[in-house]
Design a protein around this nucleic acid. Structure first.
Lengths: 152, 152
DNA sequence: CGTGAAAGTTAGAACTA
DNA sequence: TAGTTCTAACTTTCACG
């Protein structure tokens, strides 16, 4: 990926609503040159979409937790993600190397909701859980491509 | 938060580039009524911004890991997030309840980059680390407000 | 990659319930 | 306070050089 593309991706990661006009000014390209590059980045799958960043507290989901998940029956076929996908409180699902099989990042309203969610996770996927409650989030979802130098 | 606002937030969380015209069609409001509500949601901090979703693999940062962090000196004042903020590979930083003090979600290019990053984390914050490598990500960053109904 | 024009979108003023 | 319509300015999109 070129330097210019990297810069465009970085700018859009920080502000997904930047107009092509502004992106052009920031990169020194014309509006349609930027437009073309953005379309190519979208087609290539580098830019996978655009999202509003929601404040979970303001939106009534103030409690975040990380749930580590271990299958009860290690011999059973592992379709755990499929069994959990309908639980909309699960923000992210990571398959991990380590003692446990998966780590879930979940968002709920109250401790009571968390308790209910844990029960549903265990029932849906036949797993045991180990839960780490998040007390505060100094920061989150920072631009992943933040640097253009140290990656490779 | 009202039902209409919830719907708007949900739609924008899924597609942050929806036009007010389309949001209006989806909610049954006029363009400028939606516009007004979105501005209010932005002012109230419910909508904190807009981001492009970057494919980390395509962007050259294919390795994700979760790093649990414990201070070496529990008596020292805890300014760990401040000491780590400059490390751009750290996507999110959670302060957690449990054996460890923080969990970091990081994104790097190679195992070698991860090794380097761990050294920098330990040096910058005077901490020990326990690292869990992410093997795959069945899904990530799903709309947090996903339901307006089934949460409780 | 740039230009320019048509179609579509945003922002805000004036007005209404 | 929350909504509508109207309109000017801006943005996106696309054919062409």
């Amino acid at each position: 990926m070129e330097e210019l593309d990297r810069r465009i991706v970085q700018l859009l990661a920080r502000d997904g609503r930047l107009s092509y006009t502004d992106l052009g000014k920031a990169t020194g390209l014309s509006t349609s040159a930027v437009h073309q590059r953005v379309r190519r980045l979208e087609e290539r799958g580098v830019l996978r979409g655009y999202r509003a960043v929601v404040d979970h507290e303001a939106a009534g989901m103030p409690l975040t937790a990380l749930i580590s998940v271990t299958p009860v029956d290690p011999a059973a076929p592992d379709d755990i993600p499929d069994r959990l996908r309908h639980l909309t409180e699960i923000d992210s699902c990571f398959s991990v190397a380590g003692e446990e099989s998966y780590v879930l990042e979940v968002r709920v309203g109250t401790p009571g909701d968390l308790e209910l969610l844990l029960a549903r996770v265990r029932a849906a996927a036949n797993v045991t859980t180990r839960t780490t409650v998040v007390l505060s989030t100094p920061w989150e979802d920072r631009s992943p491509l933040a640097a253009g130098e140290s990656a490779d």
